[in-house]
Design a binder for these strands. Structure first.
Lengths: 207, 207
DNA sequence: TAGATTGTTAATCGATTAACAATC
DNA sequence: TAGATTGTTAATCGATTAACAATC
């Protein structure tokens, strides 16, 4: 279980989301082939991915829907929520705070920090100076960075210094961190690069 | 040039961003080793990636900074901006609209659509009914989806039907599209899965 | 039984890394 | 020249896909 590949791990939420969209009262079991068709990927891949998280499917019928959902949720840790802090309550930060859907993914953003202190939807936005004691008091290990690029590294340093070991970075900049700290970069620029190359490839193919 | 790998393409914006952060008046050339150290990746990888976009570096000195930046910007299409439409002017959609930084990446979000029509920062938010003629009039091919998951597929269908061939999807759901249309899924759930596994691995290692 | 499906083992594919000659 | 760096070719690594036996 420890050696699951990054690629597989990224796909598991997709499977789970699809399975949850099914009507559990009418569908009791589902095959890998079926999931693959719906999501546009290979059936063998689905089967192999699922093998890392769930016990077993039955030949001819497939996997028991509710068991499979439970196994995936369990594996992804959606049942025991983890607390996180968010730094930078601008538009994007507020969007994430208000979104609320993260609770479904086992993430709870309890505390937000900004230089501009205010209150939003029952969440106190606190000054950065309060970050150290909050992180330590609640034993928080996940930090979300939604500040402008020029402040991202210093915010990152502060987070790491206060025990954060997993960082979700929305700032368009690379962050330097010590070993053992994971930075998950939500890289808009990379996504855009893929989109615009698709357009260019398309137009050159037509020539 | 046509057969550049997805992985390489995703890294190019990182290199560019780093190069731009350097002081061009004091640094005139830079080596692959230097870039690799700064971004925490391998030097051979940097060299190979750069080889796909720029003419050549000089042994011993490295690459001419300004030429390299120009080559990267050119390759990534940052110089000729592409128009895009955005559907769903909620918190997240507004955050993207207001961000403005996309212009640096060659993307211009000119038109936004929502059921709730209003005006924001000089951008008209129009009713969805106006989408067809706007897409056709301005020959737009990139669409950004920031509506709730349950409406994403129907919005997607409308976009595809009106000539959109590249979709940036922020809704937490899988989209089915015909061949030739690219969906770039900004997959928050996948990112979260990686973060939370990092935390779990960490805690189990300590046992 | 026949047929659909699982799960595993082997083969392929692609990307990263290592080794090394060429060059300033 | 010596040393640092580029760029290419070969080796390694990991992930995907194909083939197939096992099973309900």
């Amino acid at each position: 279980m420890a050696n699951i590949s990054v690629q597989t791990l990224k796909r598991l939420p997709m499977y789970l989301h699809y399975l949850k969209s099914l009507d559990a009262s009418s569908v009791t079991s589902i095959s890998a082939t079926c999931i693959a068709d719906a999501l546009g990927c290979g059936d063998v891949q689905v089967r192999k991915d699922l093998a890392t998280v769930c016990s077993s499917g039955k030949p001819k019928t497939g996997y028991a829907l509710c068991t499979l959902i439970a196994d995936l949720e369990d594996f992804l840790g959606y049942n025991d929520a983890t607390d996180a802090v968010l730094v930078g309550a601008g538009r994007l930060g507020m969007a994430l705070l208000e979104y609320g859907g993260f609770a479904d993914y086992g993430l709870r953003i309890r505390h937000a920090f900004d230089t501009n202190v205010h209150r939003i939807d029952g969440i106190h936005v606190l000054p950065i100076s309060r970050l150290p004691d909050i992180c330590q008091e609640y034993a928080i290990h996940i930090g979300i960075i939604t500040v402008p690029a020029e402040h991202a590294q210093s915010v990152c340093d502060t987070l790491v210094h206060n025990g954060i070991t997993a960082i979700w970075n929305f700032a368009p900049t690379h962050l330097a961190v010590p070993d053992g700290v994971l930075v998950q970069h939500e890289n808009m620029a990379s996504s855009l690069a893929l989109l615009s190359r698709h357009l260019r490839d398309e137009s050159t193919t037509l020539e």
